[in-house]
Computed example of a mutant assay.
Amino acid sequence: MTYRSVEAILEQQDADLGAAEAHGIATGMLCVEIRADAENWLRELIDDEQQLIDEDKALLHGVFEKTRVLLENQNEDFAFDLLMPEDDDPLDEQVEALRCWCQGFLFGVGYAQTGSDWPGDTAEVMRDMIELTKIDTDVGDEDDENALVELREYVRAAVFTVRDQFAELGQSQPH
Rank of each mutant, 00 (worst) to 15 (best):
D117N: 11
Q171G: 14
D138I: 06
F105A: 15
W41T: 01
E153R: 09
A26H: 05
E76D: 14
D14R: 08
D77Q: 10
D89G: 06
F80V: 11
V109Y: 01
E86V: 02
F166R: 08
I53M: 11
G115S: 15
L70M: 14
D128V: 14
Q50E: 15
A97M: 03
V159W: 00
L10C: 00
G62H: 03
D37W: 02
Q171Y: 08
T133F: 04
G108D: 03
M29V: 13
V155Y: 04
Q51C: 12
F78I: 10
V69L: 14
E131T: 09
V125Q: 04
I46C: 07
V32A: 04
L169Y: 01
T161C: 13
W101R: 07
I53L: 07
D87A: 15
E7A: 10
D54I: 08
P174T: 10
T114A: 11
E168P: 10
I34E: 05
S172D: 12
D81R: 07
L169E: 06
D141S: 10
I135H: 00
I9H: 04
E55N: 14
G18S: 11
Q50T: 15
V95E: 02
D144S: 12
N40S: 13
L17M: 13
D54N: 10
M129H: 00
A15G: 05
G62L: 00
Q113P: 03
Q50F: 07
L70G: 07
E142W: 01
Q74N: 12
Q50R: 14
A157R: 08
G120Y: 02
A20T: 06
D87E: 15
L169S: 04
P90I: 03
E96S: 09
L151P: 04
G62V: 06
D37R: 10
